[in-house]
Every structure is written in structure tokens, then in C-alpha cells.
Design a protein around this nucleic acid. Structure first.
Lengths: 143, 143
DNA sequence: TTTTAATAATAGAATAATTCTAAAATTAGA
DNA sequence: TCTAATTTTAGAATTATTCTATTATTAAAA
């Protein structure tokens, strides 16, 4: 799903709907987040931009990420023993699996994880996030 | 449960069992983590040390935390939108509730949260951590 | 005990991710 | 076009954490 310009309108519309002025930089970064990247760091976004959107500054990467978060189009994910923030453009309710070998973070649909809690009613839970850590078995080749 | 010296032996023994040489600084920090603090940051530990263990340096705080983590006596917790690492001296399997008002992180016993996942068998899960976010209702005063 | 070797603690410098600042560029509306 | 508001930018500042080199402490050996 490489950038082809055809979904510019769609991306732009989503930004506007969320109250974000759709500048060229924001559209580019948001499309990268939605269509090409998988939980990238700010650094990865900058590296991508250096190839695909010259002159886009690191400050703009951070500004845009924070604008998207503020507009509820993006979420931060912090992972233990990983210094950099990961960004998640999937804003629907879901969970994560962290591959201990590759460091890759994989989205897990909420349907695959059932969480039942019996906390004291004092605790009003608004959000639950489940982070599973482990290894991903290499899928065996068919003969 | 203020420090009284009586559990020095116990703390010291736990460190030794874990293969950590029990120096005065390590015992002090580990006791603070176990008995007084609740998911402190390195900064909070340093502030406590400035009052209770003069001359203990910030470098030693970080060194000790990393030694404890390496020895499996301590775990890191990273929370979204919180820059600093929180440290958790409860190493048994449990979950967390983050109070959105106070920022306080509360341990939730694993018995109170049931997690049932049906991931593809490709995913070998070694650890699950559940972070619940929400507000804590003020408990109503009895008349 | 002394001696020696290994380990830990320390102050301060270095690193690195993110945020801030102030100026220039762009945009949107009048 | 003019004006005001917003965004982008480069580079400086901030801040949590780690590193470095030295000194202090500990543990074991003689």
C-alpha cells in the first residue's frame, strides 16, 4: 500500500473531521502512520521523511505526532526497556503482542483477548490495555 | 512500616540469595522499595535518600535499580505520557490500575483479573501485563 | 592481621529523546 | 491583496538516564 496520492483526500478528510488543519506535512506523516508503518518511533518517521518528504524537520515530526494524539487519531505506546515512544495509528480498542526476539509490536484484535476483572467498585475502569510478551514461532514450511 | 533495622537481615538475605552483594546503599534502597515506596521514580528514591541516607549519589540509585532488575528483584513499569520510569518491587504476577487523577499506580492481584486469549499458536506468550486506567471513586463517608 | 584483587560508590560529564524558542513560511478569511 | 492566525523550521534547551574515571569498600588470600 504505497502512497499513490489517491487517498490524500481521505486522509485529509479524516484530519479535518478531527479538527486538525491538513497541511502537506501532516497528511504525509499521517498516511505513513496509517498505511506504511507499524508502530514506528519518531526517528523512523524522520528517516522515512528524509527519503519521501525532504525538508520535513524533526520538530515537525514531533509536533505532528502530538497534534494527532491531541486529536485522538494516534496513541502512544511505551514498552519496557525501550527508550523510544512507539506510535499506534490504530485507535480502536485492541491489544498488543511484543515479540521478544525482533522487538516488533503486533496488534491483537480485542476479540482474541477476553479480560474479566472483579475490582472493587471504587475502581472505575475507562480503558484496559493488555501487553503480551513472548516469542513468535517460525511457521513451518509446507512440503 | 518505617525502617527500624530489624528487617535488615531479611533484606540483606534476599539480596544475597539473588546473587547481589548487600551493601549499605543497596539494602537501604531495596528496603525503601519494599516497605515504604509505591512505584517510585528514580528521582523519588533520590529525594528519600537525601533525607535518610546522606551522600548516596544519583548514580548509585540508578546502578542499584539496574542491579536489582538484573537480579529479578525489581521490574520497570512504563506508563503512557509519563516520562519517568516507575519501579515495582512486587515481582509476583500481578496487574496495575493507573489513577488518572492522581497518577498513582495501584497493584491489582492477578486473581482479580482473568485474561483469556485465543491467539494463533504461532504466538508463544510468556508474560501478560494488564494496565487498567480510570478514576478512583472517593469512598463515601459513613453517617 | 596485612595484602591483594575484585567490586561498588561517587561526581560530574556525556548521551539521547523530546520539547521549547523565536523567526520565517504558509494558510485562511476579510 | 492585507491581515491575523497557524504551522514549519533550525537549533538551543531540557531532562532522564547512562557512562567514565577515580576513590572507597569489601572479600579473600597469605
Amino acid at each position: 500500500m504505497k502512497q499513490n496520492g489517491s487517498d490524500n483526500k481521505l486522509i485529509s478528510g479524516r484530519l479535518e473531521t478531527a479538527g486538525v488543519i491538513p497541511t502537506a506535512q501532516r497528511i504525509a506523516i499521517y498516511r505513513y502512520l496509517l498505511c506504511e508503518a507499524n508502530h514506528p518511533t519518531a526517528e523512523e518517521i524522520k528517516t522515512w521523511a528524509d527519503k519521501n518528504f525532504p525538508k520535513l524537520s524533526l520538530a515537525t515530526v514531533y509536533n505532528t505526532l502530538n497534534v494527532l494524539i491531541e486529536a485522538n487519531l494516534l496513541k502512544e505506546v511505551k514498552v519496557p526497556h525501550e527508550a523510544k515512544i512507539l506510535y499506534d495509528s490504530n485507535i480502536s480498542y485492541h491489544h498488543h503482542f511484543l515479540d521478544e526476539d525482533s522487538g516488533e509490536l503486533v496488534d491483537i484484535p480485542s476479540e482474541l483477548v477476553e479480560v474479566t476483572s472483579t475490582l472493587a467498585k471504587e475502581f472505575q475502569v475507562h480503558d484496559i490495555q493488555v501487553l503480551m510478551r513472548g516469542k513468535r514461532q517460525k511457521t513451518r514450511t509446507q512440503h
